[in-house]
Each structure stands twice: as C-alpha cells, then as structure tokens.
Simulated assay, not measured.
Amino acid sequence: MNERDFADLAVGHALHALTEADERAYQEALAGNPHWDHHVREAADTATAISSAIEPVEPPPSVRAALFARISDLPQEPAASNASSAAADQGRDDEDYAAAGTAPVAPTRAAEPARPSPASGWGARRWFALAASFAAVLVLGFGAVTVSQLFTPPAAVVALEQIEKAPDAQSATATMADGTVATAHWSPSTGQSVLVTDGMPALADGTTYELWFVRGETPIAAGTFEPDADGNATAVLQGEMHVGDIIAVTIEPAGGSPDGTPSSEPVVAVATA
C-alpha cells in the first residue's frame, strides 16, 4: 500500500466508515509504517473541527434525496439464491421445482455494498463518496470551503512534509524590518522549495504577493500566493531552485507581474547560501 492509499483509509477510519477488510488493511499499514500516523491525526482533527464548528441544521429534502440517489448508485451484492433450499422452503420436491422453473427469492435483508475486490481499489474511496455527501450539508456553513480542502492537505503542506523528510533538507530564515518572519525550505533530492511566512502585512485590493528566485542579477518568477488573515502562508515555489538563489517576495498587481519582472522592491528576501 502506498501513502496516498493509506491517507484515504485514514479519512474513512476517522469517519468510522471502513469495512472490516479496509479496517484490517488500515491497521496493518499503520503498524508497518508508524511514520504515517500524521495522516491519522489530521483526519481525526478535521472530523473534530467539522463537528464542533457547525451548528446543527435541518437539511432540505433535496439533500436527503440526493444522498439516497448516491447510495443507490453504489455496487450491490447480488441476492443469494439456492434452488434446493428454495424448493424445500416452498414444500416442493426436486421434480416439481424443475417443472415450475426458477421462482423469485424474496429478500430477507437489505442489500449491502459489495466488498472491494483487488481490482476495484480501496473501499475507503466508496465510503468517502458517501462521506462527501454528508459533508456537502456541513459545508453550507463554511461558505467557500470545499470538501477537498477539508480532507486533503494543501499541495504546499504536502511539499513541505516531503522536504522535511528528505535526507538533504535545508532551510534558512530571515526577519524583515516590519517583523515578518520568512523561512525557506528546500531539498535538492525532491526538487521542491517552499516559503513559510509569519506576519505578512495585509495587501490592498487588486494586489498580490509574488515569489521569485533571484539568481545573480536575474529574477525568475515562481508563482503568487495569498497569506491568511494573520499574515501566515505556506507557498510552493514554481520552478527549479539553484544553490545560492535568493528567495524573494514582491507586491504585484493581481495575477502577478504583467511583464515577468518585479515591479517593486522585495518585501521579503531569504538567502539560501
């Protein structure tokens, strides 16, 4: 099992939505890879945050109808049939049963979702589709927050984790005159670099922060980002970092510099050498 599949199972485990087979697979994978336990904590924290942050609401009837429509789309186990036992139940002998043809078998219980086969992928994904249906109701209270944002770590967070686990991980920190603290993280083996900021000033409407690799005298655009209300951000730099680059941040028009060069002096500069 790879780490991505385990992360899917961790979500299902946090929602108490795994089948017995998937729960065993989850426990075995966790026992063999204890360093993956951060996925478990993140999933549990997210589930707790959702339950504590949302006021109970009565969902509209259309949501209930949509949920049951989603459930009905899941693969179902075929109803079990046994000709000889059915004939015995109806008091028929084998000869009469054969002459009468196959009689329909009345179901004695509701059909259950089929267990996953090795080719169908982890059952957690099917359960996650149901969980997403429930979460869609909860998201009504989160405005623009999406289900994927709630359950999937942002790409920048994933990249930072990969860098920190790499044997050649490096970092450098700089504190700006306005109190902003910025730390650059990078790893040549992963080919990734991330800037983590704390206390970035709020921007005027129509502007954004833009990242740059400054290589000698040449600035190379590396993407834009928006800090949260506290000025905190974790942003992946787009492109390849070279040893000795300065990682800089400038204030640019919304969407980034129109001509591919900085239009202001850097508000953040972190030397990596």
Rank of each mutant, 00 (worst) to 15 (best):
A88G: 07
S81A: 10
W122V: 02
I251L: 05
A66S: 10
A222G: 02
T208W: 11
V249G: 07
N232R: 10
V139Q: 10
P116V: 02
V105W: 04
G239N: 00
V267A: 05
A79D: 00
Q170V: 10
W127D: 02
P61E: 07
A254N: 03
P116M: 01
W127I: 07
A106L: 11
E217R: 15
R215Q: 13
L211A: 13
A29R: 02
G101C: 10
V236K: 13
G260S: 12
S120N: 06
I247C: 09
V137C: 06
R24K: 09
L150I: 09
G256S: 08
R215T: 06
S52Y: 07
A202G: 12
S52W: 06
V270R: 04
A83E: 14
A169S: 15
V57Q: 13
E226N: 01
Y209W: 09
A103D: 02
P78D: 10
N33K: 08
L67V: 12
D245G: 09
V194S: 13
W186V: 14
Q162W: 00
H242V: 10
I50T: 01
P34K: 05
F213A: 09
A14R: 01
S72L: 11
A106T: 08
P107L: 01
T224S: 13
G199R: 15
L138P: 06
T48Y: 00
G32F: 04
I247V: 15
I50P: 00
P34R: 02
A184F: 14
E3R: 14
T102K: 14
G141W: 01
G255F: 09
E95R: 15
T261F: 13
S189W: 13
H185C: 14
